[in-house]
Amino acid sequence: MRAIIPVAGIGTRLKPHTHSTPKALLNVGGKPIIAHILDKLLEEGINKATFVIGYLGDMIKEYVEKKYPSVKTSFVEQEKMEGLGHAIYTAIPTFDDDEIFIILGDTIFDVNLKEVFKNKISSLGVKEVEDSRRFGVAVVKNGFIEKLVEKPQTPISNLALVGLYYVSNRRVLVDSLNELVKKDIRTKGELQLTDALQIMIDKGEKVTTFPVDGWYDCGKPETLLLTNQYLLSRKSFFKPRENVVINQPVFIAEDADVTNSIIGPYATISSGCKIKECIIKNSIIDSNSYVEKALLDNSIIGSNSFVRGAYKRLNSGDSSEVDFY
C-alpha cells in the first residue's frame, strides 16, 4: 500500500509561522506534524509514501529523507494550487500499488487502520459534527456512500470527511482523477478530491465510511494548540531540572536549557531552547528559541526567536486594583 500525503499548501491561517516553515514541519507535542503522521503510518505497516510538495517543499524533502530513511519516498511538485483533487492527480505516476491511502498533511489521527484495510473495500474516515458547513460531507445509505458534497451551505449530513481516504482500487481512482481534470470539473473554483470520489461512486465503486473519533486538526493556531494538548495528555516527556517547577503534561527536549521557571501544563519546549525565569503554559516554543522573564499562555513561538519580558515595579497602597496587559 502507498500513502499519498499532500503538503503543498502555503498554510495561510498559520502565518507568520509558515512564512519560513512549511505547515507540515510545525512542531506540536514535541515533533513536527509530518513526523506524527509518518510514525502512525509505519505503525500500521505502510512504508511507501508520496509527498505532494510545493511551497518550501525542499525543507519537507530534506526532513523526511533524513529522519525516515526506512520509508520509500517519492516527491512530486504541485506547481499550481488547484485543489486537493489536483494534488492527488499529480501523484498518479507514483501509484505502484492497487491500494492507496490518502492522508492530509495537517491532520493527526488516532484510529485502528488495520481494521479498515482488512476489508479491502474503499472507505473514507468521517466524524460526526454539529455544523457541517466547513467540511466535505458523506451522505450514507444502507452502509455505503451515496453522495459526497464539499462544504454544503444547507446541511444534508453530519458526517464530516476528516482527511483519511482508503481506496482499494487504484485504477478506478486514476480514471476518476483523469476525468475530473479532463472535464475540468470544479467546485468552488477548485478540482476537488470529493468530486473525483463521487465519479468513482457513480461508476459503481462501493465506498463505505469508518468512524474517526481521534481526529486532530493542525490548520489554525487554536487547533494546533488543542492538538498539542491532546498529544501531551497521552505522553509527557521531560527530565527533572533544578529550580524548575513542572506541571504535567509537558514536552521538554533533553537539550533544552530551562532554569528558574514554571513549565506547564500543556507546554512544548523544543530542542535547543533556552528558557530563563518564565511561566509557560498551553504553549509551543519551537527550536533554538530564547525566552526570558516571560509569562506565556496560548502562545506559539517560532524557531530561532528571541523573547524577553520584564518584571514590573509597584508601590501600591491599600485597596488598589492593578491589571497588566
Rank of each mutant, 00 (worst) to 15 (best):
157 S>W: 07
157 S>Q: 08
159 L>I: 07
162 V>F: 06
162 V>G: 04
163 G>R: 06
163 G>L: 08
164 L>W: 03
166 Y>S: 02
167 V>A: 01
167 V>T: 03
170 R>K: 15
172 V>Y: 01
172 V>L: 13
173 L>P: 02
174 V>W: 02
174 V>K: 08
174 V>P: 01
176 S>N: 05
176 S>W: 04
178 N>P: 00
178 N>C: 03
180 L>P: 02
182 K>L: 12
183 K>Y: 07
184 D>C: 00
184 D>M: 04
184 D>P: 00
184 D>R: 14
185 I>K: 10
185 I>L: 15
187 T>M: 03
187 T>G: 14
187 T>K: 13
188 K>F: 13
190 E>D: 10
190 E>N: 14
191 L>A: 01
192 Q>Y: 00
193 L>K: 04
194 T>S: 14
194 T>N: 09
194 T>C: 08
195 D>Y: 03
197 L>D: 04
198 Q>K: 09
198 Q>F: 11
199 I>E: 10
200 M>Q: 08
201 I>G: 06
201 I>T: 06
202 D>V: 00
203 K>G: 10
204 G>C: 09
206 K>V: 12
209 T>L: 07
210 F>G: 04
210 F>Y: 12
210 F>Q: 04
211 P>L: 11
213 D>A: 07
214 G>A: 09
215 W>E: 10
215 W>P: 00
216 Y>E: 03
217 D>P: 06
220 K>D: 13
221 P>S: 07
222 E>L: 13
222 E>S: 15
224 L>R: 08
224 L>M: 12
225 L>T: 02
226 L>I: 11
226 L>H: 11
228 N>M: 08
230 Y>Q: 10
231 L>I: 12
231 L>A: 01
231 L>F: 02
232 L>Q: 06
232 L>M: 08
232 L>H: 04
233 S>Q: 13
233 S>G: 02
234 R>W: 03
235 K>T: 09
235 K>I: 05
236 S>F: 11
236 S>Q: 10
238 F>Y: 15
239 K>W: 01
239 K>R: 15
240 P>Y: 09
243 N>H: 12
245 V>T: 14
245 V>W: 05
246 I>E: 01
247 N>R: 14
249 P>E: 11
249 P>V: 11
249 P>S: 11
249 P>W: 12
251 F>N: 01
252 I>R: 02
252 I>M: 03
